[in-house]
Design a protein around this nucleic acid. Structure first.
Lengths: 126, 126
DNA sequence: CAAACGATTCGATATATAACGATATGGAAT
DNA sequence: ATTCCATATCGTTATATATCGAATCGTTTG
């Protein structure tokens, strides 16, 4: 584990700490396992697109069918479709099929919490 | 505004609603303005990378210098540097310079809230 | 003030993501 | 069954992001 660190990094730590080995070990304890990082990244990745954010914002009020979302995004059907699929794959929306129509809704209210916090954070960063 | 909608989308809405024009107008009210969407997107984009998530997780406990973060990521200095710059540009971390070292810390606890919610959301989606 | 060293930026290449026309799928109505 | 329609998927091309060696910048320290 600790011996996977590059030479230059190790040298820096050696200079910085009396017991660099111990420090390295405690540093590595700060990092979550790969699986958790990856699932977290997938959530943020799905949220990091203008069209997908617009869809989720629109779904705050309740479910909408794909064609309504298409009107909101004002983009070609294939483009909208692939974004909806991505949101669904990420678990951020759920679908309900009624006849020819597919209705989309927010999959978990935690999604709205994420949006709220990010909006506030973005505003203060501006 | 409403006349920017493509022909096929309009036709679909025409079939779907008696007053498609009114429906279109109310749909457009669901979408936030471009500026807000963009700042929100910027926050999520900065968060949608394995290395950057690892950095933020590591900073939960308190500030760390760039070289320690380099040890945690175990990546070349230039790679780590560009991720740190991106986090700083997005306002997610703040820096403090002491002598030769630059110390990084979480810029706003809202960042940790975002991470917590996304981790939980990712876990249940898996 | 010059050497040393960590941090930052630059530039080229590799990889990932987005867009969207064309086509397929599946339900409903005639 | 055939046709129509909403949605989903595929495949290609365009755009964006990540990586990392090399060069540069800013401080500290001798």
């Amino acid at each position: 584990m600790a011996d996977s660190v590059s030479e230059s990094t190790r040298q820096t730590l050696d200079r910085l700490y009396d017991d660099s080995e111990e420090r390295l070990t405690s540093l590595f304890e700060l990092t979550p396992d790969d699986g958790e990082i990856e699932t977290t990244r997938a959530v943020f990745k799905a949220l990091s697109n203008e069209h997908r954010i617009r869809v989720l914002e629109a779904l705050r009020e309740g479910e909408l069918c794909a064609c309504e979302l298409q009107a909101i995004l004002d983009a070609p059907q294939s483009t909208v479709g692939s974004h909806l699929r991505e949101l669904k794959d990420a678990g951020l929306v759920k679908t309900r099929r009624q006849g020819k129509w597919t209705y989309y809704r927010i999959g978990d209210t935690a999604v709205l919490q994420l949006l709220d916090i990010a909006v506030a954070l973005g505003r203060e960063t501006e």
